[in-house]
Design a protein around this nucleic acid. Sequence first.
DNA 1: AAAATAAACGTTAAAATGACGTTTTATAAT
DNA 2: ATTATAAAACGTCATTTTAACGTTTATTTT
Lengths: 245, 245
Amino acid sequence: MENKLIDNISVDCVVFGYDADTKSLNVLLINRYLESKLNNEVLVNDYVLTGYHVYENETLDESASRVLEELTGLTKIYKKQFKAFGDPNRLMNEKDLIWVKNEDFNLRTITVAYYFLLKTEDVDVDKNKYKAKWFPVNNLPELGFDHQKIILEAYEDLKVKCLQDPIIFELLPDKFTINDVQDVYESILGISIDNRNFRRKLINKKYIVFLDEKQVGVSKRPAQLYMFSKDIYKKMFQKNYLISI
Amino acid sequence: MENKLIDNISVDCVVFGYDADTKSLNVLLINRYLESKLNNEVLVNDYVLTGYHVYENETLDESASRVLEELTGLTKIYKKQFKAFGDPNRLMNEKDLIWVKNEDFNLRTITVAYYFLLKTEDVDVDKNKYKAKWFPVNNLPELGFDHQKIILEAYEDLKVKCLQDPIIFELLPDKFTINDVQDVYESILGISIDNRNFRRKLINKKYIVFLDEKQVGVSKRPAQLYMFSKDIYKKMFQKNYLISI
DNA sequence: AAAATAAACGTTAAAATGACGTTTTATAAT
DNA sequence: ATTATAAAACGTCATTTTAACGTTTATTTT
């Protein structure tokens, strides 16, 4: 079985994590740190996305999932391939060139970028061997390669997609309140939404299922819990829904 | 100046052309024909998308535009990068393997796929040196490589995008009637739309500009011509539209 | 038992949509 | 010249959706 890396094709993963406590959308980044062997001068100290080269015998989707699992241990997370990046100079910032000297990789690499949606709490950053760290998408650190561009394009895609597909629920636990959903929309889109109209609209969706459960351990009136039914959603939007039995 | 081809990275172009006469959406394809040198047996006779390897010193966008220009002579056509395809066996159908023997290229090539939107009449297929030919998107011939998959994914993307961005106008001449626009929607989406409601909705858009012109040479009441104003559209949807001067 | 507050519900006007019927206007036929 | 034809264009009404608010309810804390 051949298992060789393709030296000029990679995947990069924009891991979006929603933090329900701070009500913020975050991106998981890895520190890129290099100091001179001569005088311990810090040569590179910025952040990059997680990514890796694609193997000869795997699909791009498999490649992205592998990279996510390697960093977080997580599988079966929602992912979307949103764009390929292939500018000839995408790896040629000043810091990149210093870094690359040390690493030995093909400067003419194109990358296929994915984003993943999950909850920040699902990743144990303290025990993470790559020292991965969450940053608010609206307050990113200095980024290497073209990763700032990649993150911003992922974010733009997410803003559009979250209004047309039910991917918002990937960022929340299985059981959530109406206000939880509103909070996610507000932090992703950077807008404020009228709670009364939002609540009415959401409750009327058949795929938002009322549960016989309420919040516990809150210091005011506990809110009703709901879940998202992927089954009902699928049935509603499959072709010929209206005329099928 | 280096100008080398990258042997395992290509772009493929799904060229969508709308034909106002037949009211149909078409795809521009190239015949892939090979016969045996021994006995003139036809070994391969199917169709493929236009595509080519990416050069070391060009961006992916430039690469796609170059490929389109090479085939059609056209520049400045609307294009969208919609997905990268990288399955290890994407070039390994029976016919592909026969073809590849003859052509000598890397079987582990990933391709970045674009679609273009234009009018069929813009391409002179009769004089085309690649013998390019239009096929209705709903009646495609046998396709090589993974190009059927690529076309279908492009089409799905187009169906979604045409409802949220004003790309429909890329498929029409500068001056068009309301019914022209309806025809495009109907043929892309495969639905029928109430003309009275559609007309009302479209006419009320500020960016659909009434012209002092009507159709000529039609055998019934000539229809009013309109144009799409990209400027007005942009202004309407730029941030802070409402509070800017 | 009362106060506090987030959760949940309700009201109204305006706008958008869906489903139709009717009128207009240019060309073609008489 | 007049009339017929048919697409183009306009109009109506009931229903649904949206936006912008005010009000009530339920639970915990004081």
